[in-house]
Structure formats: C-alpha cells, structure tokens
C-alpha cells in the first residue's frame, strides 16, 4: 500500500479511531477494504499514534477526512495547516481529501464542531472561493461532506440540496454524501430524504458516509456516531447506491464503541447492501 501511488478504494471502509486500531490490525473482516483517517489527529505530532498508522497503512488503503478546513469560515486559509495537510495526504497516498461543508472557527477561535452555514448565494460563493483556493494547495481532489444541522442561521434563500449543488458547481469539488446526515436532517426538519438525495448532483459523489445517530426523548435526532446504524439509514444507503453506482462507503463510529463483533456485523451488512446495489466485484 505504500508504493506505486494510491491504492484503489472500493467497497466498505471504516473510520480509524484509537479504540478500534488493535482490532482492525489483528481481526479485520474480509469485507473491510479501506480506512479513513482524520489528518488533524496525526499531523504535527509523533509517538505511538503515528507509528500505529504506519502499521495500518501496510494493510489498508487510506483516505483522509479533515475536521478543520472550515471551508465556510471567514478567516484566510491557514498556509501552515494546508502545507502540513498536503504533505500528510501525499504521505498516506489518499486518492482524495474530504472535509465538511460548514464553518468551525471565527475570529481565531476554534469551536471544534460542525456549525451550519446559511443557505444563501453569498455563503455558497464565499465557500466555493475558499474551496478553490484550498484545492490549489492540494495534489488530490477536494471533496466536501453535507452535515447534520439543527438550526438555520439567518434567512435561507434556497434549500439545502440547492445550496450544496451551488457550492459544488462553483468550486468543482466532489461530494462526500453522508446519508445519515441526510436522514437526520430530513427527520428533524420534515422533508423527504429520498427527494433530497434525488435533488443532489449524484454524478459528483466520490464517497458515502454511514453512521448511527441518537434519538432524543423529544424525537430530535442528533448525529453522534455513537449508536448502531438504523434500518432506515441502511435502506437510504441502498437507495442511494442504486443511483450513484459503486461508490465506496465508510462506516463512522466515534464513541460508545461496542464489541468489535458488533462493528464487524455492521461492516458485513453494509458490504451486503453494497454488493446487491452495485453488483460490484469483491
């Protein structure tokens, strides 16, 4: 995996988190084909964490998924961050690099969360301009992910799908389609998840995310990555894959880690859906 350019990323992947690393190395299921890592967890640091990643790179293709590009933020892009990020992405030979369609910093303050952008033309233009600038500093395709949002700042000028589409069209970026986020937003804001999927430019989808979410007592759904994937999201994934074709699918599990066997069951169920929906080769 470490020579000859990026390895092919296909089928089902898993987000690499420290509590899962040992099991991934020692008991990987055949259906697990690739790993996703957050560069911010590895950049500008040393020690066991970094050496663990080197060991995993020998076994799996790696795709990078960032947390702090903050494409919609107001500050100028950080040169040091982008330079370090670019080196990391090249080092692990990621075939593309993704981050979230949001902002997470303002006035030099980092909030460490995915905060919503207003669905306006001005926000789409601003975000696309920053994505274009960031794309110039990276050697791989830049891809953006739709987020879960719980309130809309300001007055929207369009719907979420139109906003995402405008950003993609203006920037040339690819789309990381998080079907759990679509589902969570659809349930929280009362729209049809399949209609939202249909309204997106599916030919731009480079990767798909799947995760579990929390259902609060009041019925609100929160994108936690700390629960099992629900049946509705599995069904939405199948629906989406039938329209996108064999796009790689990533399972995110970031907290409340269950036994490895449960994670493997989710990977195998995702793989079965992926095979059925795409007829893709193993």
């Amino acid at each position: 995996m470490t020579a000859g350019g990026p390895a092919k990323v296909s089928g089902i992947g898993l987000g690499l988190r420290a509590p899962l690393a040992d099991a991934i190395l020692t008991r990987p299921p055949p259906a697990l084909r690739w790993l996703e890592v957050s560069p911010e967890n590895y950049m500008a640091r040393g020690g066991a964490f970094v050496r663990h990643l080197d060991a995993l790179r020998e076994r799996f293709p790696i795709v990078t998924h960032g947390l702090t590009l903050c494409p919609g933020a107001m500050e100028p892009l950080n040169d040091t961050y982008l330079s370090t990020l670019s080196k990391f992405v090249n080092h692990v030979q990621s075939p593309w690099h993704s981050d979230h369609l949001c902002f997470g910093s303002h006035g030099g303050r980092f909030l460490h969360d995915l905060l919503p952008l207003p669905f306006t033309h001005a926000a789409a233009e601003h975000t696309a301009d920053r994505l274009i600038e960031a794309q110039k500093r990276l050697d791989v395709l830049l891809v953006i992910e739709n987020i879960s949002w719980y309130a809309h700042p300001g007055v929207p000028e369009m719907g979420e799908a139109a906003f995402i589409t405008e950003v993609l069209t203006r920037s040339g970026a690819g789309l990381l389609l998080d079907v759990n986020n679509v589902y969570v937003n659809a349930r929280n804001h009362g729209f049809d998840a399949r209609e939202m999927i249909s309204a997106l430019p599916l030919d731009r989808v480079v990767q798909i995310h799947v995760a579990g979410h929390l259902v609060c007592d009041n019925g609100q759904r929160i994108d936690t990555h700390g629960e099992a994937v629900c049946d509705d999201v599995y069904e939405l994934l199948a629906h989406t894959l039938q329209r996108t074709g064999p796009v790689p699918v990533l399972l995110e599990r970031d907290q409340s880690f269950p036994d490895w066997e449960r994670v493997v069951e989710e990977i195998e169920r995702l793989d079965a859906i992926w095979q059925r929906a795409t007829g893709g080769p193993r």
Binding site: G72, A73, M74, F103, H106, R109, L111, T120, P153, G154
Partner: peptide, 16 residues
C-alpha cells in the same frame, strides 16, 4: 445580517 455577522453570533452563542 452578513455571513460574518451570523458566524460571529453563532460563535458567541456557543462560547459566551
């Protein structure tokens, strides 16, 4: 409200 103002307000909502 400008994009900058909205982001400043949301950051304040979370941090203040």
């Amino acid at each position: 409200m400008t994009l900058d103002s909205l982001q400043r307000s949301l950051a304040s909502a979370c941090l203040d």
